Simulated assay, not measured.
Amino acid sequence: MQSELVTIPFDGRRIDIECQWLRPERIRRPLVVFLHEGLGSVSMWREFPRQLCEAGDFRGLVFSRYGYGRSTPRPHAEKWGVDFMHRQAREALPALFDALDIGPGRRHGKPWLLGHSDGGSIALIHAASFPDAIDGLTVLAPHIIVEDISVRSITATRETYLTTDLRSKLARHHADVDSAFWGWNDIWLNPAFREWDLRPLLDGIRCPALAVQGEDDEYGTMAQIEGIHRYAPQTVLLKLARCGHSPHRDQTGALTAATVAFITTHTSILK
């Protein structure tokens, strides 16, 4: 299915967001909105969103955030602030939902959010900020605090980008690969970002939540999802062996089965 560009207001201007609908004809089925990782995009998800939606008989919406994929690139002189994920969750995502008629009482109804890494953090912020706007969420390797392991791995990724073919590989997925990479890398390695902390807002999450972490994640430890459970005790934890930072790639079958069961069970309860 082809992507489309949806124009939304953000930061005092109009920007284009790359979107792709999956199985839109299944209008009465749960809608899963996929929020990508820090260097992700619509195409970087590969086949996972479609596989999950087909396995659960769900609808899907995959989109590239501002600065990623075929969405409007970040101007190179524009530096993201420490609150960049909060702004995505509280400003850009609601604007996209408004443009696409998603939400309570709207054509597409309340969505389920499925976020990976930075996208998982954005999903958590959105769920805490708008507790009645979504039916539930699944977060894969989310960040709620900045750990030393995260900074070490992101520093290593910077060196890899500068010295290997990583840049050319990522360029297949982004209209402006340097905009995408440096927007993410610069803020994560900014010393001010070490104080970034989602824990104070997590008790605002009221919806069902499934939090997933790989035992071999090179960007975060189990403290991330255990922290979510501490503040939002309804959260179900899934810890996956032989799994790094991308459960949807490393443990596709186990993650798909768990997510389908979780959404299906809670959809029945919500009815």
Rank of each mutant, 00 (worst) to 15 (best):
K110E: 00
H116R: 08
L137A: 15
D176H: 15
I154G: 05
R90N: 14
I145S: 08
A77D: 15
D165P: 07
V62N: 08
S121D: 11
F97M: 13
R158S: 09
K79M: 12
S71W: 05
D83A: 10
P94Q: 07
S168M: 12
A133Y: 14
I125N: 02
G115D: 02
L35S: 11
G120L: 05
V139W: 02
A171C: 05
D83Y: 01
K79L: 13
G69A: 00
H173S: 14
P142N: 02
R107Q: 13
A92V: 09
T138W: 05
R59M: 02
H76P: 04
P49D: 13
G109H: 06
A89C: 07
P49I: 13
T138I: 15
G40L: 08
E78R: 12
T163Y: 02
A127D: 00
K110H: 07
P104L: 14
G69Y: 04
F63K: 09
E37D: 15
Y66C: 08
P75H: 09
D101G: 00
R90P: 02
R172S: 10
T72L: 12
R167C: 07
D176Y: 06
G67A: 02
M44A: 15
L170G: 05
K169T: 12
A77M: 04
A92Y: 06
S129Q: 01
I122N: 05
D98M: 09
P111C: 06
M85G: 07
S121W: 04
S43K: 15
S153E: 08
T157P: 02
M85P: 05
L113I: 01
P142H: 04
G119F: 01
